[in-house]
């Protein structure tokens, strides 16, 4: 139980993939202009990462390691992720068209979101078992969503505030992200 608690706190706050490790910066800056779209992206990513952690662990343990193909890890994992994203897109289209319309634009982007691949690789490097991997994937995705939502909230306020002209847009968002990262450093000693 304590392992799971450590993973929960660790992945969401202490080792947040976006704020503390620089993964997934592109969607973090790209889709954080509006709170609603950020929420949609966060949900889609959470789903994909959780399932991807589960499947990549199986692929690693039952295909790559037994046949000594560890050097194919990158290719195998990214293929799993690409296929998974495609499947999610097709399934959503059939099952829940409204959700598909809400998330539609972001789904293909998830393939090139490096959090997904980074979580999958780190699960293996950290030696987690199947349950821990899946849980850690879920928690990392929650951490990603948290960072995305926080920045989106701040940027919505920044839109209406009186910013110097040269700070508007990406420079402002980057500096804001830097200040958020300072805040996240405060969680450093938690576990």
């Amino acid at each position: 139980m304590s392992t799971f608690l450590a993973i929960l706190v660790g992945q969401i706050l202490v080792n947040n993939y976006v704020m503390c490790q620089f993964f997934g910066i592109c969607p973090f800056l790209g889709v954080s202009k509006k709170f609603d779209t950020a929420l949609g992206m966060g949900l889609a990513v959470t789903f994909v990462i959780t399932v991807a952690s589960f499947i990549t662990w199986l692929v690693q343990s039952f295909v790559l390691t037994p046949f000594h193909l560890e050097y194919l890890q990158t290719i195998a994992f990214i293929l799993v992720i690409a296929v998974l994203v495609q499947l999610v897109e097709m399934a959503l289209k059939k099952l829940s068209y409204s959700l598909y319309q809400a998330l539609g634009v972001y789904l293909p982007l998830i393939t090139t979101n490096c959090v997904v691949l980074a979580v999958a690789i780190n699960n293996i490097t950290d030696g987690y078992n199947l349950l821990e991997s899946t849980f850690s994937g879920f928690c990392s995705a929650l951490g990603f969503t948290l960072a995305l939502l926080l920045l989106a909230g701040i940027r919505e306020r920044m839109e209406v505030s009186n910013m110097p002209k040269w700070m508007q847009g990406f420079p402002g968002a980057l500096i804001m992200a830097g200040l958020m990262a300072v805040a996240f450093m405060g969680f450093g000693g938690l576990i």
Partner: peptide, 22 residues
């Protein structure tokens, strides 16, 4: 030390983009 950590990266890049835009 902060320049070697995460916040330093974000802030330096932000300031560099200001410069490039300028």
């Amino acid at each position: 030390a902060i320049m070697n950590m995460v916040p330093g990266g974000f802030i330096t890049l932000g300031l560099m983009m200001v410069l490039v835009n300028f």
